[in-house]
Design a protein around this nucleic acid. Structure first.
Lengths: 241, 241
DNA sequence: GCTGCCTGGTTGACTAGACAACCAGCACTG
DNA sequence: CAGTGCTGGTTGTCTAGTCAACCAGGCAGC
């Protein structure tokens, strides 16, 4: 029945499941390791290898204590001019995005940020840390650095605004415009791994950007973000119709 | 000695090795699974998990029958205007790139290609398949489709040129200019896996592009390429100084 | 009501041992 | 001299079984 010559059984079974998975409902549950082993006559470790292979292909998500579930990737489209918005990206798929502010801290600017924002030594910045959710599941996090002297009393103002963008634009007349943007696929650092509530370092789409204010003609914002690569897929596009 | 509370031993050992690996020479060999198991007092399967974890992080490459070797990633930089050249990218790292033509075939244009190149039904295209090497190791492959009527007698002409680009520019006065470009990280198809001489599907940086000819004012070339993601890393950049 | 405990089911980690597939090098043979 | 076959070492696959960590839900007791 299988066209296999001598492919390992765990790959053969993974292939069978992968094909049936393409028409499965995202979020639905797969058989457990023990069930799988029983129905295919394998040892549990082999059934495990099957599910791990599917996880490696980002076709399923495995949750300890609960089971294995059908995954679905969200395209994270990056192109010139269009700095992708997390909320927009998620909403387009029909899911519900949510951003949660972890903390707003006032601190001395790290050297790298100071250079990017053209600040004097000792200058202070606000560091805004956020967490990103899709359907109430934690899928990413991000940091934003803002020169403190440009946005006095930011925490309170931010409270009254729907978003940081709105606060900057309407509260301070500082509309930020993306100037430099960079994205890559990388393994999460230990710090990001912790923030995402995971114990093993996941692959992430890492983004870094600098935004300028047209009125002031200088950079005002440095951002860094990480999105789980088993939930999002990085797509780069230039040109097109 | 380890700051671990109860991190799994395979992750702990992987951490130790990862740190020492950053200063190791790319290409040098790591201890074998058995050696590792002996020196750390583990079972071979656990030592195996250690090396597999390092492979997952793209820090090492494992070759059946030979051993485990220190890897090094090459940045594949993508930006507006600058369609990255495989040869340029590799040469910048000091390694030796090589491209090898697998085949040049004349065939009816597939529907998707026909649409992109604005060809009539039944029109013919040349399909040029290439393989990409770094220091004589197979790391990628690519396909190029060209409208056959624009490049009569292509196979012979290509023989006398250093590259396809040169043949198009000087042989036919058809300088191609990148119009649409797209890159993403994806699991290799079975076909690409075969062409890369692997048995398990690897992650790849997949690129797709359409090039136009300024003189003719129409698209003349469709390209698709795959580079192994355990050798290259996709980096997207806009703006900058 | 609701807090805390227990229980059955799930994935995670580890040890034990076996055989297969593959590679490089070497000696031997024709 | 070319090719064959052997051999030791390597990673790949698989079975067998154990304990741990975690989750959801049910249930008893406060």
């Amino acid at each position: 029945m299988a066209p296999s010559t001598d492919t390992p059984t765990y790959l053969a079974v993974a292939g069978v499941l992968a094909r049936s998975l393409s028409s499965a409902k995202p979020g639905s549950r797969l058989p457990s390791e023990n069930e799988l082993a029983r129905t295919y006559g394998l040892h549990r470790q082999t059934a495990r290898a099957v599910l791990q292979e599917l996880e490696r292909r980002h076709l399923v998500r495995r949750v300890r204590g609960r089971g294995t579930f059908v995954a679905s990737l969200i395209d994270y489209r990056v192109g010139p001019g269009a700095a992708p918005s997390f909320s927009e990206t998620v909403r387009r798929t029909g899911a519900a995005p949510r951003s949660e502010t972890e903390s707003i801290r006032l601190r001395a600017a790290p050297a790298a940020v100071r250079a990017e924002l053209e600040l004097a030594t000792g200058a202070q910045v606000y560091l805004i840390s956020r967490r990103r959710f899709v359907d109430d599941e934690l899928v990413g996090c991000g940091d934003t650095y803002l020169a403190a002297d440009l946005v006095p009393d930011l925490p309170r103002r931010l409270h009254r605004s729907a978003s940081l963008y709105e606060a900057l634009t309407e509260g301070y007349d500082l509309e930020p415009v993306r100037a430099v943007y960079r994205a890559e696929v990388e393994l999460a650092s230990e710090r990001v791994t912790r923030r995402l509530g995971l114990d093993a370092q996941p692959w992430t789409i890492a983004t870094r950007g600098i935004a300028e204010c047209a009125r002031l003609r200088r950079p005002i914002e440095v951002t860094a973000g990480w999105l789980r690569a088993d939930v999002f897929r990085l797509v780069v596009e230039f040109g097109g119709r």
